Computed example of a mutant assay.
Amino acid sequence: MSELKQLIEEYGGIQPPHLAFYMESIRFSSEAAMNSIDYLADFIKMTNETKGQYEMTRELQTIILDHLQNILTHAAALSRYFWPSKPGKDSLHQKRAETLMAEFDLNDDSPLKNRSLRNQLEHFDENLDKYLWSKPLVGYVLPAYVGGVFDNDGVPTHLFRAFYIDVGIFETLGQRYEVQPIVDELCKIHEKFNSANNHT
């Protein structure tokens, strides 16, 4: 075993003074996601208080969908710290991930591990190419939609981005993701981060 590999094993992929760099990277994505989560929580509170009596303008739809995409994009970014795509030389990335998972009390049941979500967002340009060239776009074509799940009466529907409020599902390019489990995990990471910082 090389000296470097031995040190990686000994320190679990992160030398103690370097943990702060990983924590700062995680903080950035965590706080960016939480800002959008807070906005959506205020929106949901407003919908409840008004019993749905408000105008869903194009601008409001765009803002809501932007915040949802921001949450999912930062969830995908955080996922890479805990579930790297490659183990790395001398298992460096894998060891680092294991150390961070222990630090944040995460396991492989986490919704953040969803590789499908990561691939969808990280390669969005390629996925958009494939989606638009895979079949003729006939029927309903909606660049943005926020509202309840609707009955399309059998007519094909193509959605660039959609959020079904009644079931908490975000859809993009035909892929659907349940938002609440991801939000719950992001909140858990944010709380753990704050808890760790309060004890330093």
Rank of each mutant, 00 (worst) to 15 (best):
Q94P: 00
K188H: 15
L100W: 00
S36W: 08
Y140C: 04
I8E: 02
C187Y: 11
D42E: 14
D90H: 14
L68R: 08
S116G: 09
Q94C: 00
I169N: 03
I169E: 12
K89I: 13
G168Y: 05
P84R: 01
S30V: 08
K130A: 11
S85M: 10
I182E: 07
E178T: 11
E24G: 01
D108F: 09
G13Y: 05
L60E: 05
L121R: 00
E10I: 02
E185V: 01
F21W: 13
L78F: 03
A20H: 13
E55W: 07
R96M: 09
S30T: 14
S110N: 07
T57M: 01
I14D: 06
H93Q: 09
D38P: 00
P17A: 02
V167A: 05
R118D: 01
L106N: 04
P156V: 11
P16M: 06
K188V: 02
I8P: 00
V149H: 08
F104D: 04
G88F: 03
F193N: 13
K89Y: 15
G12F: 02
Y177A: 02
R161E: 07
Y81S: 06
W83V: 01
E59H: 10
S29V: 01
V167Y: 02
K5Q: 10
A97V: 03
I63K: 09
F21N: 10
L186H: 09
D129K: 13
F104R: 02
A20I: 15
Y39C: 01
T200F: 13
G12W: 01
R115H: 07
I169G: 05
H190S: 14
M34W: 14
I26G: 03
S110L: 05
T47M: 11
H74S: 09
I71P: 00
P87T: 14
L159F: 06
E191N: 15
F150I: 07
I8F: 11
C187L: 12
M101L: 08
G168M: 06
N197V: 13
A76D: 01
Y131G: 08
S25Y: 08
R161N: 10
I44Q: 14
M46P: 01
